[in-house]
């Protein structure tokens, strides 16, 4: 079982790098969706006793992260009629290499720091941190509003991985509240991106620069 969980973590890390290296926004949406499905299913493999609340929150996470949010994003993409991130701040290849280096660094540091407990989740903390940092890289280096939202989603996924350590501590109501917040925020953000597209005829956030000192 441990082996299998570790394989899933490695897949998540590889998906991170794919997301960094792809220019087609639709593909990145699919990558993030796949990552969401794996994340949603993870608690079922980590916990030994599968309870009803666990099952419900897991299914809710899969539906939301794997299907609902990607559909909202795809609709926003269709409305905006753009296909790719044309010129990111850092090129695709350099940012993939940078992402790989960051991941390696996180794993190196975490191997130096003594971590506690459960051997079955030994990859969990470094995977979580690497995903959060790659979310940041996506968020900062891309200009299209939708790509930035995808960066935020990867960051959110990284935080979700960390929360798997704390399944006992987070009651279902709170878990559902977090998912609801995520859903509403993506919903509102997609409305705003739609308005950005209408007002500026583009989703390039460099247009959003009239407010400054």
């Amino acid at each position: 079982m441990n082996e299998f969980i570790n394989v899933l973590f490695v897949i998540i890390l590889i998906l991170n790098l794919f997301a960094l290296g792809n220019s087609r926004i639709l593909t990145i949406i699919r990558i993030v969706a796949l990552q969401g499905i794996i994340l949603g299913a993870l608690p079922l493999f980590i916990e030994h006793h599968i309870t009803i609340p666990l099952l419900i929150s897991s299914v809710a996470a899969i539906i939301l992260k794997g299907f609902v949010i990607p559909l909202i994003m795809m609709k926003a993409l269709r409305d905006a009629q753009i296909k790719r991130e044309v010129e990111p701040l850092i090129g695709l290849l350099p940012s993939t290499i940078f992402g790989g280096l960051v991941t390696a660094l996180v794993f190196f540091i975490s191997s130096q720091v003594e971590t506690t407990n459960q051997p079955e989740v030994s990859l969990l903390i470094p995977t979580s941190f690497a995903t959060i940092l790659i979310g940041f890289i996506l968020l900062i280096t891309r200009y299209k509003a939708i790509s930035q939202v995808l960066g935020y989603l990867v960051l959110e996924n990284g935080i979700y991985i960390f929360s798997l350590l704390l399944i006992e501590a987070i009651p279902m109501v709170v878990e559902m509240g977090m998912l609801l917040d995520l859903f509403v925020s993506i919903f509102i953000i997609s409305i705003i991106t739609n308005h950005i597209n209408k007002a500026f005829s583009s989703l390039d956030t460099r247009n959003l620069s009239s407010l400054k000192e």
């Binding site: 959060i132 968020l139 509003a145 930035q148 935020y152 960051l155 959110e156 935080i159 960390f162 977090m178 925020s185 509102i188 953000i189 705003i192 308005h195 950005i196 007002a199 500026f200 956030t205 959003l208 620069s209 009239s210 407010l211």
Partner: peptide, 24 residues
């Protein structure tokens, strides 16, 4: 207005990332 879109976008993005770090 165009300016209020810009302000809302910055508020949402910066606020969401900030609050995500608070969750972490």
């Amino acid at each position: 207005s165009k300016k209020s879109i810009e302000a809302t976008w910055k508020y949402l993005l910066v606020g969401s990332v900030g609050i995500a770090l608070a969750l972490l």
